[in-house]
Amino acid sequence: MGAWAQIVPLILMFVIFYFLLIRPQQKKQKKVQEMQSKLEKGDKIITIGGLHGTVHALDEGSIVIQVEDGTKLTYDRSAIREVLNQD
């Protein structure tokens, strides 16, 4: 009985950590990856650095963003934080 009394709290702590920390982070990461994979030309976006712009061109791992003054910048897809005009 003594061995079980020591193992059960450890298992219980792991279960609590999984449901409070690990699982929500995995869901958030999956949602972000899905958003980044659905990017289309013309979408209005915000990068993780706060740059607001419009998607001008897409590549497998990169994206060209056109800002208001016509400047075009190339970023990794992972730099996109939010899409403003997608539902």
Rank of each mutant, 00 (worst) to 15 (best):
G2A: 15
D87W: 09
H52A: 11
I11G: 14
Q6H: 04
K28Q: 15
V83R: 01
I80K: 01
G70R: 03
K27W: 12
M1G: 12
D69T: 08
L39E: 09
Q86G: 07
L73Y: 06
A57M: 09
L58H: 10
I63L: 10
T47V: 01
K44E: 08
E68R: 10
G42W: 02
I22Q: 10
K72Y: 04
Q29M: 09
M13T: 06
I63D: 03
R23P: 12
G53E: 01
A5L: 09
I65N: 04
K44T: 05
E82I: 00
T74R: 14
I46V: 14
F19G: 11
V15R: 09
E60H: 12
A3D: 13
R77Q: 03
F19P: 11
G42T: 02
F19A: 02
Q33P: 05
V32N: 11
E34N: 12
Q29W: 06
S37Q: 11
L39S: 02
I16S: 11
S62R: 12
K44W: 02
Q66G: 10
K31E: 14
D76E: 09
S78H: 12
D43H: 10
F14R: 00
L84Q: 08
D43R: 00
T71I: 05
V32Y: 09
L84C: 05
I80M: 04
L12T: 15
H52V: 08
R23L: 10
L21Y: 15
S37T: 07
K28C: 04
E68C: 07
T54L: 07
V32F: 11
Q25A: 14
V15K: 04
T74F: 13
Y18V: 00
M13V: 14
H56T: 05
I22H: 15
R23Y: 13
E60P: 12
R81V: 01
E82V: 01
K38G: 05
I65C: 07
I48D: 13
L12P: 07
I7Y: 05
Q29A: 13
K38N: 13
E34K: 14
L84I: 01
P24Q: 05
Q26N: 05
L20D: 07
Q29S: 10
K38V: 03
K30V: 04
S62E: 04
Q66C: 07
Q33G: 03
R77L: 01
Q36G: 06
I48P: 08
I48Y: 15
M1Y: 09
K30P: 05
P9V: 02
T74P: 08
A57E: 11
V8H: 09
L39T: 08
K72A: 07
T54W: 06
T54F: 02
K44D: 14
V55A: 03
E60M: 12
R77I: 00
K30G: 04
G53Y: 00
T71A: 07
R23S: 09
K41M: 04
E40P: 00
I80V: 07
